[in-house]
């Protein structure tokens, strides 16, 4: 207590507090996607046949590949935290760089996947899409909205991890103070977590 008393708020760093804040932020993200999952669930029960048919259009191979990529990247982030905690700065940075590469692979795959849909004229507002049965139209709407929003989160995660790398290099993050890498790690796992649910919903339900 004697310590707490004389420290001005700015000098005081609360490790547990900042982690709790991150968790709360993760909840808001989960509910943000949760709203979309609700919409998906409702339309899925109403138009299950159409959803089956439309889901066959999605590329299961790319979907699976991206799942594997994200899972591995999640592991490398978790490992980089272990590295920081055991004072292996260089290894932590290398692991985060691997994560960034994997994230880029994910985005490139996504680019080709979307590009293919656009070639088939299956984009929102296109004539082909509007003339599809109602359920398929809704499926593709959700597909673009959900994977698109997820891709934005991947980008944000990449930025966070990049900042983290620089903070490790500059020595702000070290064995004694690793809140930031832990919190960006949590964010990256969230991106993975959401994908784990998106994957069967978009690619596997055939």
């Amino acid at each position: 207590m004697a310590e707490i008393k004389n420290i001005a708020p700015s000098e005081h760093h609360d490790y547990q507090g900042s982690k709790m804040g991150m968790w709360l932020f993760i909840f808001t993200e989960l509910f943000l996607f949760g709203g979309l999952f609700l919409v998906y669930a409702v339309f899925r029960t109403q138009y299950s046949a159409d959803f089956h048919k439309a889901a066959e259009e999605t590329n299961t191979f790319i979907g699976t590949l991206n799942t594997v990529v994200l899972l591995i990247s999640s592991m490398t982030v978790a490992m980089s935290i272990t590295a920081i905690q055991s004072n292996q700065k260089g290894r932590a940075i290398r692991l985060l760089l691997v994560t960034l590469v994997l994230a880029s692979v994910f985005m490139v795959n996504k680019y080709f996947e979307w590009g293919h849909k656009f070639e088939l004229k299956l984009y929102p507002g296109s004539e082909v899409l509007t003339n599809l049965p109602k359920g398929e139209l809704l499926f593709f709407g959700l597909y673009f909205m959900m994977t698109g929003l997820h891709a934005i989160h991947v980008l944000v995660g990449m930025i966070l991890l990049t900042v983290t790398i620089f903070r490790i290099k500059s020595g702000h993050i070290h064995t004694g103070n690793f809140s930031m890498i832990e919190n960006s790690g949590l964010y990256w796992h969230l991106v993975d977590l959401i994908w784990i649910f998106l994957f069967p919903m978009m690619y596997l339900i055939t």
Binding site: F27, T28, L30, F31, L32, G35, L149
Partner: peptide, 14 residues
């Protein structure tokens, strides 16, 4: 605030 507001957030985005 934390658990309900994101739902309207995504709804408005939709």
């Amino acid at each position: 605030q934390v658990l309900a507001t994101p739902i309207v957030g995504i709804t408005l985005l939709m």
